[in-house]
Design a protein around this nucleic acid. Structure first.
Lengths: 172, 172
DNA sequence: AGCTTCTTCTTGAAGGTTAAACAAGTTAGG
DNA sequence: CCTAACTTGTTTAACCTTCAAGAAGAAGCT
């Protein structure tokens, strides 16, 4: 986000992005912004919820008894527990998720996908997949798709462990 | 986001993502989420503003007289005018941006980067570039960097023109 | 047991985003 | 001109996210 003045030696001059790197980075930011907006809008319109919430329902739908502990769900969706707490509160009000106490750990809560939640998913998944396809997969060659997967896997990996943060030990 | 039941012929059965596509897509979502969170946190901590706001200052810093019409800035940052309006209000309160009337179009407003805003940028840019490098560029081969740029350019392109949306004819 | 520490989840407030509606100004067509 | 249609930018309220703090239970240590 800046032009390189001079790469001085033994100096703490920041290593600015090269013009090529800048282009890559800007393309990334633009596409990521547009894509997330696009999907948020698509889902808000067709399913009445933002993309992240939809992702939560998907995770639950794939879990063993369609239930997951809050912390596990948060971790798997890459969001903070706080955010999840608010999200589940909303989804619960919609009747798509229900909370259940964990028998083995009285602090614990399960988020459980309700039948109604399943139904919403069943009804809206096709449209969502279509949107994803149209925005991403239909435009990329198999090679690019594979490359994208690898690249993003690498980036995600580098961001996962982190030292320790306020609310989220695993999220930096 | 679902398992393929059967690709029936001449049927409107949705084309679910293949397992490979699902992996790619999940990696993308995870990395994008983690990355945006990471950068948001980095900038919130070091610059006192979210990543998008930082991007606005950068755009302004590169514009001719360090000023851009609201609509142009919004378009270039890929956000809605409404969002920009709020953002500029906040940046103005921080003294980093100032609004100025457009002489040729009485409806128009320029967002102008103040000296103070420039200073914030100067002070925080190194740290931000370092974060981006560490999270992305340092982990990818030159080939992957190039591939990422191409891929994201394609995706962004497909999302740009669109038919016409409520507030944003160009977004969607 | 008793004490400290960690983990789980929630809360409340502050801030950011969205959607819809609007005022004001500009443009295009007759 | 004059009106209809469009643009620009803002506003409001509803919603979502973050941050810091905290209640409650579990785990570990002596």
């Amino acid at each position: 986000m800046n032009t390189a003045p001079t790469p001085a030696p033994g100096d703490d001059e920041p290593r600015w992005l090269t013009p090529e790197e800048q282009h890559v980075w800007r393309s990334y930011i633009e596409a990521a912004t547009l894509l997330e907006d696009h999907l948020d809008r698509q889902l808000q319109r067709d399913a009445g919820m933002p993309h992240v919430y939809y992702g939560l329902l998907v995770k639950l739908s794939e879990a063993p008894r369609r239930r997951l502990r809050m912390t596990e769900l948060a971790r798997s969706a890459k969001i903070t527990r706080s955010r999840l707490s608010h999200a589940v509160a909303r989804l619960e009000k919609n009747g798509w998720v229900r909370r259940e106490d964990c028998p083995s750990d009285k602090r614990g809560q399960f988020a459980v996908l309700t039948d109604e939640g399943r139904e919403v998913l069943r009804r809206t998944a096709p449209g969502h997949v279509a949107a994803v396809r149209q925005a991403v997969f239909d435009r990329l060659t198999p090679g690019q798709q594979q490359a994208l997967g690898e690249i993003m896997r690498i980036v995600a990996e580098g961001l996962q462990p982190g030292e320790a943060g306020a609310d989220l030990p695993w999220l930096r």
